[in-house]
């Protein structure tokens, strides 16, 4: 190890400032009144409104009906993010289990077929996906929001690689211990995969939380709006000739960022703990 140099810290500090300054600007500005913001622009120091805009952001509905309050949208996003991440973990663990532990024809081909879907993001298949969901009468439902997105080639790939590193002797020992395929999965593979699951949960929750296009197309009832798409609506009153409530919008942006940050912070501890005391 070489000794720390002041220039190392300088680079780190510049990086931190680069990332955090916009956030600070948003936060400081969100505590000012709309008038101040319109007259003087973004604010560097906290203002007199305090946290009042946050209350307003959580409780005031911005759309035509009263259903799409900030709180409602946060809850919707939470359902979407958790459902998305948990669904992906379940589906891809099951797929990887089948691919690694069961000998069936075309297994390799199927794996690569799944892998190739990485080349087909949601945007490419959005019209047929919408068609299917619409035919199933799942528009404006949590099922419709989540289920079409939970197949994941990335997660399947990670779990497959992980299962391949699990020693075969464990499977054999379990076989002799009268554990069938289901028991082996439930009692041995799933507990061993905990750190993988935490890692994938972090990534997938954030991806799910940040979904924009799909909820935008899927939902017409404001009660199902998610926070990321809702952010746009709160400022769209500009067109209606009113002064947009910038401070409330900024507050909502900050609120929209908190859950993903919390998930990362929370799960990262598990994740790193898992990396350090590897159980295999």
């Amino acid at each position: 190890m070489t000794k720390d140099h002041w220039s190392d810290h300088l680079i780190l500090i510049v990086g931190v400032l680069f990332l955090l300054t916009p956030l600070w600007l948003l936060f400081a500005s969100s505590t000012h009144s709309v008038d101040t913001l319109i007259r003087e622009g973004l604010q560097w120091l906290p203002g007199g409104e305090g946290l009042a805009p946050y209350g307003q952001a959580l409780t005031t509905a911005s759309g035509f009906t009263d259903t799409a309050t900030g709180l409602r949208m946060l809850i919707n996003s939470m359902i979407m993010g958790v459902g998305f991440a948990v669904g992906k973990i379940i589906v891809s663990m099951a797929a990887a289990y089948a691919l690694v532990y069961f000998r069936f024809p075309l297994a390799t081909f199927l794996f690569w077929a799944i892998f190739c879907t990485l080349l087909l993001p949601l945007e490419v298949r959005i019209v047929p996906s919408y068609e299917v969901v619409s035919d199933l009468n799942l528009l404006n439902s949590y099922t419709g929001l989540i289920v079409p997105l939970i197949a994941s080639a990335t997660a399947t790939f990670y779990f497959r690689q992980f299962y391949k590193t699990v020693p075969n002797e464990l499977l054999e020992a379990a076989t002799l211990d009268n554990a069938g395929p289901w028991r082996f999965f439930k009692d041995i593979l799933v507990p061993l995969s905990r750190t993988m699951m935490a890692a994938i949960f972090i990534i997938m929750f954030v991806v799910g939380w940040n979904q924009y296009l799909w909820p935008l197309i899927m939902t017409t009832e404001e009660g199902y709006y998610t926070i990321v798409m809702g952010l746009k609506h709160i400022l769209s009153v500009v067109r209606e000739g009113r002064v947009p409530e910038y401070n409330v919008a900024f507050a909502l942006v900050i609120l929209a960022m908190l859950p993903p940050v919390a998930v990362v912070v929370l799960f990262q501890r598990w994740f790193i703990q898992g990396l350090v005391e590897s159980e295999k």
Partner: peptide
């Protein structure tokens, strides 16, 4: 017969203990 029904027990080279139990 399947392995579990043969009434045998095996000690493996790498022990094959369940690491999470």
């Amino acid at each position: 017969e399947p392995p579990a029904k043969r009434d045998i027990a095996m000690v493996f080279q790498n022990y094959a203990l369940y690491p999470h139990m």
